[in-house]
Design a protein around this nucleic acid. Structure first.
Lengths: 337, 337
DNA sequence: ATGGGTTGTCGAAGCGCTTCAACAGATGAT
DNA sequence: ATCATCTGTTGAAGCGCTTCGACAACCCAT
């Protein structure tokens, strides 16, 4: 391995000069800089990460804590992770992948060992066991998702309350008076992952304001589960003409089932999904949807966490505004035509 | 931050003794060990990662290089990543997440800086630009996937050739004489990701052996693409009664379309999928499938790479045998009933 | 008693970098 | 010509750990 000392010798300068060329923390004459950079290139030098971390007490690593569950909103998680990795690289950092499995202990370990300079937590629950730790280590951290008490923390998330409201508004404007919501699996609500509950609240609040009837049902992502949920919905509210689907995995089953029952989309019923755009355009009917801006969430999380690494303080709650894209799955309610 | 020196003072021993307690590289009396461990607990000591890496030239980090594309076989990628992270922790290592984006340069950087002790590469192409580098850095590395020339490298993968063969066998045994294969998107073949081509070869070879007619068509994962592909298949081979689907995203569309055309599964046509078990059981018909053992691939990759870190040499190609699970989507061919 | 072999512990060197204080030389103001 | 100021560079200290060689202290054969 090439060391900084060898580069210094090769360029005919001292080690500290090479270091300063690399970090830019002191002015270096153009001539010297050029010579050093040339040596670095010729020797193929890469600074040793451990030495650097030891001397500077900065590892240039961000830890990303992902849920271990592999059954829910996978594409979203994946896209966030990739956005985090990409954005981190743009800030000269790398990403350490932690699974939720280790729980709060992982936070202690990573912080205690100086492995990472900062952490990003995904899939934060309302009352998350990792939060107290995070608050009092004082390490830079950003949550993707919003806990019950975000005080002293930085959070990014899609504004799910507004998302719910937006879906209802869209359907209400089209004249739908009976709306059914296909929610996430019951387990998601039981875990108190805030986004599902906030979406529900947003839906309900706006429905009440607009005088629209709303039925909210959790639903697993399988065909069979969707079939059961749908028939129960139509039993209770035969006049349902609008659907909002939050569970990605339930989208295809729902469309299939509607088709099977001879209900045309969007002529007889309208469907609005809350899902990544890619999912919306790949479905059998191009779906009117509110996008989950996974990429942007990941990107903002890194930007916010980098700001904290650079020393900016203070709590902060950043809600990304929902955007609804009208595609082919929503139209005027039959009665209103 | 608590340091090793403080632990040593607290326990009334030298720093080296603490180090040996931690690493187990020298024998320590039970009494001393106990005292040191007690101090570690009391002080909440965590060894500093940078210092450790510098002194031992081992970072205890494995780099995992993931494709950046977010459109293909996402659940599989995700499951592999989580399995890698989990298994790595069991070996006292952490995982650094790299995206394919940086390309070969990432390999150079990670190896050069000693950031990671070893690398695991996913989504390896037949003629992958990262391989020459990997070979001559001599760093422990394991590929998930198999390149054209695996010499000098360690690879793990599902045996896709056998997988293809197995699918054909199953359908042939049930009496199907005309089989259509819904392959991956054309882009996958164009990138020369080996698995798709090997599956096709396996399918073709066994079909030829068994005297079965086989039509292989790449297909995008959208409903529209599947519709087009299906109608072309049925134009060319109206007698098709067996389907093998490799593109996960095409599964639901295919089942929907068959239903719409009044072709019952499995009475009229049989469908065999190549996909994670979870996808197979969530489809509208519980699918007969060959599982993609994502978890095991990730686990084995880590185990193999750890063996190399410990010094084991030699190239190695580990093919996981395919397992076909019969569920509700395959049955005797109509003509054979 | 003597010597050789264990076993448990320690001191010190050193891993490759960052950063601080110091300094030589050039620049500008007086 | 003189002093203060700035610029560019350097040497040395030290970050927290691992590891090597040394060395007591003890064991069991002789």
């Amino acid at each position: 391995m090439v060391t900084l000392a060898e580069v210094a010798r090769h360029a005919g300068v001292s080690a500290s000069t090479v270091s300063y060329v690399l970090s830019g923390k002191r002015s270096i004459s153009a001539a010297t800089r050029e010579r050093v950079e040339q040596s670095i290139r010729e020797l193929g030098y890469h600074p040793n990460a451990g030495a650097r971390a030891l001397a500077s007490s900065r590892s240039n690593i961000i830890a990303l804590m992902m849920p271990l569950r592999t059954d829910m909103y996978v594409p979203v998680m994946m896209e966030i992770a990739l956005a985090v990795a990409t954005t981190a690289r743009a800030h000269d950092h790398d990403v350490l992948l932690l699974t939720g499995e280790e729980g709060p202990e992982a936070v202690r370990r990573v912080v205690g060992s100086g492995l990472a300079d900062a952490m990003i937590l995904m899939d934060v629950e309302l009352d998350d066991a990792r939060l107290p730790l995070l608050r009092d280590t004082g390490r830079p951290a950003v949550l993707i998702g919003i806990p019950a008490d975000p005080s002293g923390l930085t959070c990014v998330d899609l504004d799910f309350t507004a998302t719910g409201a937006l879906c209802v508004e869209h359907l209400a404007e089209l004249g739908h008076r009976d709306i059914a919501v296909v929610g996430e699996a019951a387990a998601v609500y039981e875990r108190h992952t805030g986004f599902a509950e906030r979406t529900r609240d947003g839906l309900r609040a706006r429905a009440a304001e607009l005088g629209v009837r709303l039925l909210h049902r959790p639903c697993e992502g399988s065909y069979a589960a969707m079939a059961g949920t749908l028939s129960r919905i139509l039993d209770e509210r035969p006049g349902t003409t609008g659907f909002v689907v939050q569970n990605e995995a339930a989208i295809d089953p729902l469309l299939s089932l509607l088709r099977q029952q001879g209900r045309a989309v969007p002529e007889d019923v309208s469907v609005v999904a809350i899902c990544p755009d890619q999912v919306a355009v790949q479905a059998s009917v191009r779906l009117t949807s509110v996008a989950i801006p996974a990429h942007e969430m990941g990107r903002r999380a890194v930007e916010l966490v980098m700001a904290r690494v650079r020393g900016e303080r203070g709590e902060r709650l950043e809600l990304l505004p929902p955007r609804l894209t009208v595609r082919a799955s929503s139209g005027p309610a039959p009665a209103a035509r």
